[in-house]
Amino acid sequence: MENIISIKGLSKAFGNLHVLKNIGFDVKKGDFITIFGPNGAGKTTLMKIMSTLVEPSGGSITIDGFNIKDDPLEIRKRIGSISHETYLYSELTAWENLRFFGRMYNMDKSRLNARVDELLEQVGLGYRSNDRVGTFSRGMKQRLSIARALIHKPPILFLDEPYTGLDQHAASTFEHVLRGLDAQDTTKIMISHNIDRSLKLCNRVLILDKGTIVFNKLRTDVGSVEDFKATYESFVHE
């Protein structure tokens, strides 16, 4: 399988503070990678650089053949982002939110309307499509944010601590919806510190600590959740 994302020698410094140091890893098409790490390890910065929000200080990232510095717009077309923030407008309805973001991806009207209806059904919110998002529960907003991220059928999905603020039930529903939408073989990168929930989803595990990748193995090589927790403790001293 070819590499869809390739990161080489990536570094980021804010003034004298070196947040990321010489990060390098490859992601194959269809991979689901989870990056674990303590707070302040640089996970969010790494995610922001990959999604073209922050410029790296050094190194290179290629996503689907495009360089992050030269073609940020092309890269943004190819990624969908789910975060602990929902990126939804409270005053607009579910349907209006999805349509607005669809328009931002330059989708044409008729195709967009059909896509919005389809997605709302898929995330189980079809019956609330004309209600304002402000009236939704946290779990419903998070499901809608999945629909928002997938509106333009991106081949790559970034998940930034998607479990934050979700209770057990909402988290399970979230995973269920995410799996249900997985027919298109999207490549996924998730950052998380919830080992219990996140380990079972991925096929490759990375640990980021103090700005460097200290661990990079296939899911099948790390053993059970308990084994991995022990491994994690040995690398990261919180």
Binding site: L53, L73, E74, K77, S83, E85, L88, M104, N106, K141
Partner: peptide, 15 residues
């Protein structure tokens, strides 16, 4: 800033 919308907007492929 509510719900991080500004970041959501910046993630869209618009100038």
């Amino acid at each position: 800033l509510e719900n991080g919308c500004l970041e959501g907007l910046k993630l869209c492929p618009v100038d």
